[in-house]
Amino acid sequence: MALVLDGVAFGLQLALLATGLTLIYGLAGVLNLAHGQLVVAAAMVGAVALGAGAPVLLALGLAVVTAGAAAVLLDVTLLRPVYRLRGQARVLLSLLLTLGVAFAADGLLVHSFPFTRLNLSVATPSVELLGVTVRSASVVASLVAIVALGGLVVLLRTTRVGRAIRSLTQDEEGAQLCGVDPGRTRRLVFVLGGSMAGLVAVTQGLVSSVGATSGLDLTIFALIVTVVGGLGRVSGAVVAGVLLGVVHAVAAFHIGTVLTFVILLVAAIVVILVRPSGILGGAGS
């Protein structure tokens, strides 16, 4: 039971990480391989601000804003030529460009902050939950993730902007015909997706810590969850995140982290081959 709760907590982090990636892919056709670096950038800004004596909430707010701003910056600068392409060519070019951005950012971050870590897990008291003792930091992190994910779902389902995002995700040209401005909506989605990545820095900082070298691993985890949930499906990413989080916790306890990682990777491969639209989607292409 403790393992399952741990897993759900970790899964909510994964979900938070993956929704940002999947949201951007679904709307813009950009698979942002620099997603993990957004998290790291946010974490570094947060850690530096905290180190300079800024109040915790301000520092964390800065962290989230940094990731959102970095994402939208990417959208309006480097990715602009990408949107002139369609379909497969767009996906491929964005993949290669963001891979380059990921390397560039990784080198810069590791160089500039070799020893900085965002660590918010200041001796938090433990609490009883469902008969199990859990760290309150973990509870807070999970609550943050739940609120953020819930907020995102409400935004997508009920607001005008949300409808615009969903219609663009389904049919870019059709939505344009019906008066949706793709550029504006896309910028919004990059802000949203980037901010979700920034939140991951905060929640990860609560339960463990984020260092400058975590970028690639975070991107890989985001990719796995996104693929298992179905590329571009927010609800799929949430379900897949929690599911894989539990699998991760249980498997890591029994067979160690290395083989657990292999299991997650194989899960992603199997989903792509058997059910490319993700665990919630229909079978076949």
């Binding site: 996906v91 990682f261 081959l273």
Partner: peptide, 30 residues
């Protein structure tokens, strides 16, 4: 062969082969 017979788009083949790389490295470690 898998990519061709499952008609994988470029992005999916990219992810599958990347995952294959990481599986390989982790199996070496494990």
């Amino acid at each position: 062969w898998v990519a061709v017979s499952r008609r994988l788009e470029v992005i999916y083949l990219g992810i599958v082969t990347l995952a294959f790389s990481l599986v390989f490295t982790n199996l070496l470690l494990g």
